[in-house]
Every structure is written in structure tokens, then in C-alpha cells.
Nucleic acid binder design. Sequence first.
DNA 1: GTCTATATACCGATAGAC
DNA 2: GTCTATCGGTATATAGAC
Lengths: 187, 187
Amino acid sequence: MTNRDRLLGSARVLLWDRGYVGTSPAAIQQHANAGQGSMYHHFEGKRGLAIEALTETTQDMRRRAEATLDSSAPALDRVIAYLRLERDALRGCAVGRMALDPDVVTDDALRRPVEEFFSWLTDRLHRLLDEAQRSGQIAPHLVPDDVSAALVATIQGGYVLARAQQDPRAMTASIDGITALLTLQER
Amino acid sequence: MTNRDRLLGSARVLLWDRGYVGTSPAAIQQHANAGQGSMYHHFEGKRGLAIEALTETTQDMRRRAEATLDSSAPALDRVIAYLRLERDALRGCAVGRMALDPDVVTDDALRRPVEEFFSWLTDRLHRLLDEAQRSGQIAPHLVPDDVSAALVATIQGGYVLARAQQDPRAMTASIDGITALLTLQER
DNA sequence: GTCTATATACCGATAGAC
DNA sequence: GTCTATCGGTATATAGAC
């Protein structure tokens, strides 16, 4: 692995665990076993490296979601399968945590990958819920746009609760709760 | 207002907007118009001040929630009234954001007010959902423990989505979505 | 491409005068 | 109680040798 690749990987790990304001270039260099010169040769600085790192991370997460959402199962089943994906609740979401970082939200280039990931995800779920509604899997009066937002929000909030209580069961409870509400009509 | 009070108030504002790792003692002192000596006279340091500030903030938020949840209306109506409270979606939640801060989660004294607030809130909603279930307002097979977690998570995730997209409508969509799911049986 | 040296600013805290 | 001075350390970046 090249120095550049290790720097990117280390940035992804540290941004995930400590956020943007909590991650220093020196910490990234140490984690990657690279010197300052190497980092500033390959990247414009902390910000440039973070933009690349975030872009990679969101692309990975999108691929992972697509693997679950693009199946041949009925639409609602695919949505629920996505809700039920295994998540490291105590670690938090690598993308969601960036949305609460003050220096990320106020910087369009840094925020773009975050925004694009969530826009894509809610839209993807939206279309699946449309399909589920057409085939009678969910109630006709539900607004897929609102429900898809609620689903993504529940996952993100599940991370918040799990970390606040230092107990991953807060995440599973949240997911179980929203799943039960979503499948209520099938009781 | 005393210097001490202004320092506390400034800490609350800055912790809300920039989190713990993103807030420096110097920034608090400037915002409060107080010198270093004043701050270190009244508080043990950044950490001690933050613990007091967070405790005050969570108490305020709890009082605000209680004002809505402790009414004479039917249980489910009170829960929905809480979901529908006005929120500054783009600013984020003063408590929830702390749960994603690496230096807060790993420090029990700092995390305690955060944990206690969410424990209290989910428990309070849990009891209201129990009551709603006994009176037939929500389906008998729902697990109030899970649903209450999902409700709180949806609010917290609504903040994440709104900030990621820099659009407060992501919050209202999430709330509308979860509300529709919760009241599904009344259609 | 990578290294060390250096620069300027800020971090969080302490010292001691008033 | 508040102020200014100061401290050792780190944040982020640049310079220039190799």
C-alpha cells in the first residue's frame, strides 16, 4: 500500500471516530506512519484530505446500501432488510457524525459528500416505498417522502441514543420500533 | 448578571453550536466578556464548566418537555404534541450533539447529563405509550419500549438530516413520517 | 516522494499582582 | 474576583534538503 493510500485510510478512520474538528493532521500522519511532507505532498492539507476521505467513505456506504436495496425481493422487504443491517452502534455513523460537525456544515465542499449520501439514500427508500405502496404493502395514505426521511432519521438517531447511553441496545430498540410501526398493517 | 452566570451561558451556547472538542476556553471567555482568571476562579477548567453547562441545558430541556408531556390530554395526543414541538433543525440538538463528541462519550462525568436526559425522555414516552396502549390508542402488539426509542431517535436523526442537507424540511418530513406511522391505526 | 526543521497561531492551564 | 503575564504543548502549514 502506498503512503497516499494509508493516509486516506487513516483519515477515514479518524474522521469517523473523532470528527473533523477532533482530527489533527499530525494524528493522521502518525496513524498512517507517514511524515508531514508526505501528507502535504499528496493532499492540499487537512481539508483536501478530508474531502477525499469523506467521498470514499460515502461511496462505500452507498455501495453497501445498494447491495441490500437492489435485490429481487418485494420492495418493503428490501427496506426492512436495510433497516436490519448490522451496525456498530457505539462507534456511530461515519457520515452522520459529519453533519453535526460545525466546520463541516459551514463548508460546502466538505458537506457535499454528506449531503449527497443522505439525498441518495432517502430518495432510494422513497422509491421503494412508492413501490411498496402501489403493491399494497404499506397503507395508501402514507407519504413515502416523509416515511423515508423518518426511516433514515431513526437509524441516525439510534446512533445518538446508543452512544449517549453507551448501550447498543438503544439502536436495536429504535430499529425494532420503527420496523413494527412500518409493518403495522400486516398484523 | 454575574461573570459566573455569563460564563455558564456562553459555555452553553458554544457547546451547543460547536460541541466540546470545538469549544475553547478562550472562546467562552470572549463570548462572556470575562478574563481567563475569572473563568478559572469560578470553575475547575473547561471540563468542569462544561459539566455544569450541560447539566443546566439538560434540565432546561427536560422542563420544556415536561410542560408538553404533563397535560391532561390523552396519552397519545401528548406524545404527538411533543413530536410537533418547534425545533431549530439547522442548529441541532444541544444534548444530542454531545453524544457524538469523542471526548464527551469517553468521560462519564461529562456524559452523565446526556445519558440522564435521554433515559428520562425515553422512559417518559414509554409510560405514555403504555397508557395509550391500555386505552386502545395504539395497537396492542407494539412494544412501547421500542416505539419510544424510535420516536426519540427520529427527532435526533431529523437534526442530522436537516443539517446534512441544510434544509429544515428534512426535520419536518421525519416528524410527519413517524407521526403518520404512529397514528396509522386511526385511519 | 519523503524527511526534518521551522513558523505562527492557538490550546488549556497556572502565577501572581491588584 | 478579576486582570495580565506566562507556560509547555499542539494545530496547521511551509521551507528546503535529500
